[in-house]
Design a protein around this nucleic acid. Sequence first.
DNA 1: ATTTCGCATTATGTATACCATTTTCACCAC
DNA 2: GTGGTGAAAATGGTATACATAATGCGAAAT
Lengths: 245, 245
Amino acid sequence: MIPDSKIRESAEKADLAPSLSAARVSTAGPIVRPTLHDEVVERLRALIVEGDLLPESRIPELVICQQLGISRTPLREALKVLASEGLVTLVPHQGAVVTKLGAELVDYMFQVLESLEPLAGELACSHMPQAAIDEVCRWHDQMMRHYKRRERGEFFHLNRRIHEAIVGGCGNPILIGVYQGLGSRVRYARYMVNLSTESWKQAVQEHREIRDALAARNGKRLARILKQHLRNKREYVKSALTTAK
Amino acid sequence: MIPDSKIRESAEKADLAPSLSAARVSTAGPIVRPTLHDEVVERLRALIVEGDLLPESRIPELVICQQLGISRTPLREALKVLASEGLVTLVPHQGAVVTKLGAELVDYMFQVLESLEPLAGELACSHMPQAAIDEVCRWHDQMMRHYKRRERGEFFHLNRRIHEAIVGGCGNPILIGVYQGLGSRVRYARYMVNLSTESWKQAVQEHREIRDALAARNGKRLARILKQHLRNKREYVKSALTTAK
DNA sequence: ATTTCGCATTATGTATACCATTTTCACCAC
DNA sequence: GTGGTGAAAATGGTATACATAATGCGAAAT
């Protein structure tokens, strides 16, 4: 599960919001050495989101400390942060457990996302530089090729990239931050989602419209499509959660 | 500023979301003793939101530890949480400072709130028990009496109570949580806001419509009014921020 | 006089040891 | 099997120590 025992090096973060966490420029900019607990937060978040730490599983301090080669202090600080993000739940004198994402919580989160992502899309239409839009379109075409070959993994990867690019391009760091927080919590529900052929086809069609609306910088239309897209997504994530359990 | 030196007792929390943090029932329910860092988080949050700790001011660990009568560990854990909420900014080897709320950030936050609070209002119209709605109406009437007497403090207090009751009544804990997070950050900008007679009058009129829409459980209409209400609010908060600095 | 270098001071980041409290669980009595 | 009882283990919190980086100040250099 947790392979190595020293983590001091890696600190990169698939960064959705270059405007939020100081964008690491190639050679210029201030030298920021991330603190240990920050890296621990990233690491644990990744473990949870990627599904290496399953919901409901406990997180014993000593074990993690040993596996990460750190002391309790930074780990405990990291757990507090993750708890405030909702990824783990802290029970006094009982420790941290990975928060379980019930169907009702997913419902609640999508309800919020269905309000935020359309807003982001609308803003992105007027704020994204043309180059970024072009890039999203390229990703879209690439995604379509994966769809034709029924390559699920690659498809979902690009799918997520597109959504994050749109949100990241909205120009509102607060919105980006909130979206990230919710997104990281809902993301690890994806592993149980096995899109049916029919739903997949529909999602593809919606993405086509998303690309067109974005390319045309038609904010209202993009917002409408994104909302519908999310509403469908919510449905099959929910059904996947209730059936597969 | 910080009067006492022991905080072990107080743990009550003007609770907007009884559904989120386990509602403390009068005599039943499990005995939960809040952990120390949780209380510290509350305490510091209050200090910041109430304006006792001014933006840009540093938060020296040792001083706060002494004033609160605690050791560094729980304080540091609390600071990490507040940082992840955006209330303080953590600079490595430099400590924590109260995040300054620039006009552009306020703009960004209102943009998100203008999307979330209408949603909450719409949901509240279908989810709030009649008793809660009646209570909001009573608060409204009381607020109006304060308005007639030009009692600013009491007016704002009830104003906030009403908004929080509506959001708290939406039935979506995720939405409530996000709103709380943003609200606590934007709230301490209120201290510089000095509503003009004209804007005040307008706000009162909007609140009248808010009450009517809520009482009629007209979700769409409430959403529309809340959005407009927030848009106006944003404008005078912004102008207050840019002029008063 | 201003800049710069070096050094002491200070505060933060992390580790470690220790204790209190609580949970867990095995064990035992009934 | 049910229900205490107590030891072991894990967590919450304190205290301390030390490494590292930021800050400030004085001396040296220009």
